[in-house]
Amino acid sequence: MLENPIKPHACEILDILPQTETEWTFRVANDRPVRHGQFMQLSLPRIGEAPISASGFGSGYVDFTIRKVGKVTDGLFSLQKGDSIFLRGCYGNGWPLERFRNKHVVIIAGGTGVSAVKSLVDMMYNDQSYAKDLHLIFGFKNTCSVLFSDDLLRWKNAASFHATYTLDAEEAEGWQKGLVTDFLGSIPFASFGGDYECIVVGPPIMMKFTGLGLLTSGVPEDHIWMSFERKMSCAIGKCGHCRIDETYVCLDGPVFNYTIGRSLVD
């Protein structure tokens, strides 16, 4: 009999890396193939299931950076190294890597949205010839909510990376103050000769205004990519929660080109 596609499997927590007080990275044993930008359904028996994007992966593991915002994630935060969590997936399309190869890549991410691009950024960090260069604008609410501090520093110092890190409403050394949309003007789109792609991921309101801001900066719609987050119960196109008209975010996304994503009205 075929494997039940929604049956979760126990996986060992290999490590827990607190990022902030409320956002931790769980490194979980995994042998299944993962693509950048995909997500998995994490279960805690008794508590339930939630879609979480893979913030990193490597041989034998996958990382999930999780914010404590719901009952599933609250439950996760009581686990320890060596405990099991249950996984199924991966699901979703992931980032269209080939579209980024040998181009200028712009990544604008807010809050936990950064975890949805972390593995991608790391891939380009480890292979700095993959893209022509990488322009990052990462925004967080305040210093307490900053994720991946060590990685941010590492990326900032990478030769082909141009990183702008912002805090919504706090002054701090090494940080700009303001929303990510305030810094779109700093990206030298004109110098890219049209040879670039933009990635936007974050809370829905941030993605909406960043998308509009990019259009204002003259970025063509089809150069913008966004990752959507919706409620999901099944991740296989059955439960209906993530549906927007004919589009199922779990099946057709979570990554959408802006030509499509723009017209997805819930």
Partner: peptide
């Protein structure tokens, strides 16, 4: 259409 065809994944319980 939903339970068997959508996304090319069959819901096993359906």
């Amino acid at each position: 259409q939903i339970y068997l065809l959508n996304g090319g994944v069959e819901d096993p319980f359906y």
